[in-house]
Amino acid sequence: MNFKGRDIISIKDFSKAEINHILECSKKMVPYAKGEKYTNILKGRVLSSLFFEPSTRTRLSFESAMNRLGGRVIGFSDPSGTSQKKGESLADTIRMADSYSDVIVVRHPQEGAARLAAEFADVPVLNAGDGAGRHPTQCLLDLFTILTEKKKIEKNKIVLLGDLKYGRTVHSLAYALSLYGVELTFVSPGSLKMPKEVINECKELGVEPRSTSSLEKAISDADVLYVTRIQKERFPDAEEYNRVVGIYKVDNDLLKHARKDIIVMHPLPRVTEIKPEVDKTPHALYFKQAFNGVPVRMALLSLISGGRL
C-alpha cells in the first residue's frame, strides 16, 4: 500500500483497507510517541505548520509527531503575524510553504481550504481542520482510540452526543464508523441534529443510525460515548447558542446508567459538557485519546513522506 506523496484531506479519500493500514502503523509508533524509543526516519525533512485558527492538541501533536520522527517544524499559530493580514490569499501562502518545506499541515476557518491548498502545493498537504468541514486526522485518532481500547471497531455500540450539526469531528467519524458496521446513536438538541447528508452516507454504508434526545436511554447499552462541545464560534447568532448550551452534561450520576466498560471520548477542548469528576474514572478516555494524536500523526507523516521504521 503506497501512501507516499498523498494528501490527507478527507477521511472519504481512503478505503477501509487503507484506514486499517494507517491504524496498524499508528500502533507501531506508540513507543516512539511516548519517547520510549527513538527514530530519525524523517531527519532533514521540514514540516510547515500553518494554523489560521486556534488549536492546542492538533498543532502540538503534529509538531511533536514531526519532532519525534527526527524532522523539523516551521510555521505559525496566529495568522496575524503573516502576510494574510496584508490580504494575501491562502493559495499564495501555500505556494510559499510549498517551496520552504516537505509537507504542509494546514488549519483554516474556510471549508475546503485544505483541498484548495493541495491544489497549489506539490508537497503533501494534511488537513488539520477546515472550518466546520473535515478533520481527518482527528477521525483517525478516534478510530485508533476505539480500536486500542475495545480491541476492534466493528459491532461496537457508539453514541455521538452534542453538536452534531456544526461539529466537524462527528461528521467524519459517523462516516468512518459506518465503514466498520458499528451501531450508531445520535443524541443532540433539536436544533443541532446530524445533517441529513451525513445520515444518508451512513445508510449508504449499511448503517441505520438512531436519533434520540434521551441520553440516559442511549448510553444504557453503549460501548462508547463520544461527547462534543457545543461550539460557540460556529453559531450564526448568540441566541441560538444560549438556547442549547449546557443541555447535556456527562457526570458520574449519568454514567451509573451505563455499562461498566463504557468509554467516554471527547475531541477536546471541553467546557461544561463533561464534569471533571469523570476524569478520575476508568471511563475517561479523552486524555489518552488526545495522546493518540501523536502516534497517528507520526504514522501519517512517515507514510506520506516515505519514511519507514
Binding site: 490569499s89 483554516h108 471549508e111 484548495l116 477546515d130 466546520a132
Partner: peptide, 15 residues
C-alpha cells in the same frame, strides 16, 4: 456558485 457561505471557493482565492 457553492451554496456554502464559508466555502473557500466563495472567497478571494484564484480558483
Amino acid at each position: 456558485r457553492c451554496s456554502n457561505p464559508t466555502c473557500v471557493s466563495n472567497f478571494n482565492e484564484p480558483v
